[in-house]
Amino acid sequence: MASSNHLPGTTLPPFMIFIGYDPREDAAYNVCRHSLLKHSSIPLHISPIKQSDLRSSNLYSRKRDTTESTEFSFTRFLTPYLAGFQGWAMFVDCDFLYTADVADLVALIDDRFAVMCVHHEYVPKETTKMDGAVQTVYPRKNWSSMVLYNCGHPKNRILTPELVSSETGAFLHRFRWLDDEEIGSVPFVWNFLVGHNRVVENDPTTFPKAIHYTLGGPWFERYKDCEFADLWLKELEECEKEKKGDY
C-alpha cells in the first residue's frame, strides 16, 4: 500500500518515494517509511517495491541468482517506469533510517542530471551481510541504494520491465546506460554507511541524515548492537505505538 503525508495548506504534488521491500525485512521497511514521514515538511507518496506484485503484474520475470541479497536487488531500477517516466522520484533500500527532513535532499535536485546519488568509494571487508547473504564487491557499490531519478530524462526511458528483467547487474548497478556527467552527486550524509562512514567530532555536517545499515541492522540478531542501533530501535517503538493508536 502506498502512504501519503498530506500537510495542511500545501499544494505541491506529493514527492514519490519507492522503498525496496523484502519479506525478511518487513520491520525495516516500516521503520524507514515511518522515519521519512515523521521528519518530512513536504507531502510524500511512499510505495513499497514488492517483487511478488511485479511478477503477478508481468512487470518482472528475472530468475533470481546467488548474487541477489534482497528481493529488490534489481527491481529498484523500475523506479522511473513505476513513476510513469515523469518528474523526479527517489528509490531507497528499506534498511535506511531518516533523521532529517527529506525535503532538504529534494532541494538538491538538479535537472541537468539523469540520476543523483552518493558517490561512495566503498569496498566491504566482510564476505557476508544481513542474515548470511553473500557480500558482493563491484565498482560504484551502494550508489544504487539511494537514488534520485529524473524519471522524465530521455536516457532513463531505457529502464523498461523487459530491460530490467534481462540486463546484467553490472550494467544496472553501475548506471552504464548513462554517461558519467549525467550522474549527479549528493552529500554522503544522505546515505551514511554504518561501519564505513564516520561522524567527525564537533562537525555536525558529518552526522547522518539517512543512516544506511548496509551490512545488517538491529532487526537481525547478528547486528542487534550495531552502531546507531539505539536510534533504529527507538523509531521501531514509535512506529509500533502509532500502529496501536497509543500516540
Rank of each mutant, 00 (worst) to 15 (best):
H34E: 12
L178P: 02
R140D: 09
P48G: 11
F72S: 14
P208T: 06
S57V: 01
K155E: 14
A27S: 07
G152P: 03
P48N: 07
T11E: 12
N202F: 08
Y213I: 00
Y21R: 11
F77V: 02
F85E: 11
D26G: 06
D246N: 06
D104T: 00
D246Q: 15
E121G: 03
S61F: 12
I158F: 09
A133E: 13
V147I: 13
F77K: 02
N191H: 15
H173M: 05
L148T: 04
H173D: 15
E201H: 10
E162T: 04
H196M: 11
S52A: 12
T160L: 09
V194K: 07
S165E: 06
T206I: 05
E121F: 13
T10F: 01
P187K: 06
Y21T: 04
V92A: 13
V106A: 12
Y81N: 14
I42R: 07
L7Q: 02
L12G: 05
S166G: 04
A170N: 10
Y223E: 08
P80F: 02
I109H: 05
P8W: 02
H120V: 12
F91Y: 15
E71S: 13
H39F: 13
P80V: 00
S57L: 15
S73G: 09
Y81C: 15
E227Y: 00
R55Y: 04
N191W: 13
H6N: 10
S4C: 09
K234T: 09
E242R: 07
D22F: 10
Y149I: 00
L193M: 11
R62D: 08
P204K: 02
K243Q: 10
L148G: 01
Y213Q: 00
E201S: 15
D131A: 13
N197D: 15
S47A: 12
E235F: 06
Y223D: 10
K244A: 15
G195S: 07
H34T: 01
D93E: 15
L193D: 00
N156E: 10
C151N: 14
K63H: 03
W177G: 01
F220N: 10
L105F: 07
M90N: 04
L12A: 15
F192V: 03
S69K: 08
Y29L: 13
E227R: 11
V106H: 09
T206M: 07
C239F: 04
P208M: 11
D246R: 13
L236F: 06
P23K: 12
